Simulated assay, not measured.
Amino acid sequence: MTRLIGVLTVKHLLILTSALLIACNNDAAEPVQKSADPAPVADTFLAQVQADYPVTLSPVAEGVWVHTTNYRLPGQSPIPVNGMVVVDGEDVILLDGAWGELATVSLLEKIRAETGKPVTKMIVTHHHADRTAGVDAAEREGIEVFTHPTTPMLAARAGWPAPNTSVAALEAPQARILVGRVEVAYPGHGHASDNLIAYLPAEKILYAGCAVRGAGSETLGNVEDADLPKWRDSLLWTKATYPETQTVVPGHGKGANLSLIDATIALIDDATTNAD
Rank of each mutant, 00 (worst) to 15 (best):
T245M: 10
A47W: 02
P152V: 00
G180D: 06
W65T: 11
K204T: 01
A158C: 08
W231Q: 11
A19G: 15
A36P: 02
H128K: 13
E141L: 11
N257C: 04
P74R: 12
N257P: 05
A263P: 02
G209V: 02
W237G: 10
P31W: 12
D227T: 11
I143Y: 15
V135M: 03
A168T: 05
L236D: 08
A138C: 14
A185G: 11
E244R: 05
A240C: 10
G63L: 05
T2G: 12
V86P: 07
C24T: 13
T104N: 11
N164Q: 15
T9H: 08
A98P: 08
E183F: 01
T245D: 11
H127Y: 14
I265E: 04
L196I: 04
I15P: 00
V124L: 09
E171I: 00
D233H: 07
P118S: 06
D270G: 09
A226R: 07
E62P: 01
I205A: 09
T125W: 03
V184G: 06
A133C: 12
D276L: 09
A103Y: 02
N222C: 00
I177R: 00
V212F: 09
R3C: 01
E114L: 11
V86W: 01
G190Y: 02
D233C: 02
P78I: 03
P243R: 09
H189F: 04
P118Y: 01
N195H: 15
Q48W: 00
S18Q: 14
N222V: 00
D227P: 03
A202Y: 05
V167E: 12
G221T: 00
V32Q: 13
L170N: 05
V49T: 09
K239T: 04
H126G: 06
L57C: 07
K110D: 10
D276A: 13
N26M: 14
N195L: 03
I205G: 08
I5M: 12
S77W: 06
V145M: 04
L107F: 05
L14N: 13
E90A: 10
L16A: 15
L95I: 15
E244S: 06
P40T: 05
A172D: 14
L196Q: 03
I177N: 04
A36H: 12
F146Y: 15
L8W: 14
V41N: 07
T56A: 14
K110H: 13
P74E: 14
E144K: 15
T120D: 02
P229V: 01
S259C: 00
M84K: 11
F146S: 06
